[in-house]
Nucleic acid binder design. Structure first.
Lengths: 209, 209
DNA sequence: TAGATTTTCTAACGTCGTTAACTGTCACGC
DNA sequence: GCGTGACAGTTAACGACGTTAGAAAATCTA
């Protein structure tokens, strides 16, 4: 009753370190297999049994590493955002603030087009919205910084920077989702953001006068 | 071989008209039941058996009216768009072109917030994209008209009206999806579109000079 | 009323996520 | 060295899903 019944494993250190390593490795392989199935065959093929087979196990072992399918999916979402953020790296080094925003926008939409199935899971409403937002936070923060730097570069004071970032994000998300297959999507996103940024600048200039 | 084997039903007119009417009625009741379950309990509760039970039938009868669950869902999507377009009615009567766009934008996002589950099904990627776009066409056309009228009112020639409409739609869709629960979503959408429209005007003014 | 047709139901198939219970396989204490 | 316990991994199953085949019931035609 008073013992720590929950999580009372991993007491003997010696051999258990190897076991933990193996455990972590299997966990990682499951994620990779899931990611591979998702990207190559779509979300419909992404079943627990299929993933387990691909890592040469039976279905129940997956539940030793993840609480359920949702937890595994969330891991894929997080992975997806890390991947996307990585694609932003070059674009984020662009010195010109305007072009930087446009390049990131283009890169965002391009990522969605390059990984349609992953992108859809990343924004799947079936996955808990809060958890999804949590794992997406690094990407959101990047957009936030991007916009802050832009407004600083142009001496533009946005009425509410947080909301402006949401608008930016929403615009990208909308265009990316609506034109997942299309190859003119990145240009569309650039065009949209060009107008949006210009609008913000004009708005701010009007305030000043 | 040369006979019309497919759809060779409804040969005798007399009583079959009543039957057809009953058939159509049942079909409508199924849609309504499905809509009710969806809106009140979410997409997870929307199963064929559940719908059938609600109209006091057993599951297989649903398949006499719809080819499968996808076909039924598509009907809900179409219904949703009709509903949404109806909500636009007042806003579309607004005389001022700018305010008209903003009001429709606000109404779009408000609709999404008022019918979150239906809205999600309306944009569910699991449903065939082409068919989804087909049933959404009336709504898209309305946005198109809206934007055309706006650009005419302001003497703005958009480089590509079609793409501009996609941008408009994408922005609304993104913001609505990202802030489904939030009550400040309509304001966010208005803010976004205000900036976007201003950007387009400024852009066009620059072209002219 | 007898036969044909159409509606509706029962039963089942295969698949899904998930859990329980069994079996083998090691590392450790005596 | 050898039992003992913890753990990995398996098999089998549960309940729910979409969907289909075929029996049963209701209805229409003649």
């Amino acid at each position: 009753m008073f013992e720590d019944t929950t999580e009372a494993k991993w007491r003997s250190m010696p051999t258990s370190t190897r076991r933990a390593r193996e455990r972590a490795n299997t966990r990682e392989r499951i994620i990779e297999a899931a990611l591979h199935v998702l990207e190559t065959e779509g979300v419909a093929a992404l079943t627990i049994r299929r993933i387990a087979t691909d890592v040469e196990y039976t279905a129940p072992v997956v539940y030793q590493h993840f609480a359920g399918k949702d937890a595994l999916l969330l891991e894929l979402v997080a992975h997806g955002h890390r991947l996307m953020l990585d694609e932003f790296r070059h674009a984020l080094r662009e010195p010109d603030a305007d072009r930087r925003v446009l390049r990131v926008a283009s890169e965002y939409v391009r990522f969605a087009g390059a990984h349609p199935h992953l992108y859809r899971v990343m924004n799947d409403p079936a996955i808990d919205a809060d958890e999804r937002r949590r794992v997406a936070q690094p990407a959101i923060d990047a957009l936030d910084e991007l916009l802050t730097a832009w407004s600083a570069a142009h001496d533009v004071v946005l009425p509410d920077p947080g909301e402006a970032c949401e608008v930016l994000w929403g615009t990208l998300y909308g265009i990316a989702s609506l034109h997942l297959g299309s190859d003119r999507a990145p240009l569309l996103a650039e065009q949209a953001l060009r107008a949006l940024l210009l609008g913000w600048r004009t708005e701010a200039a009007g305030q000043k006068a």
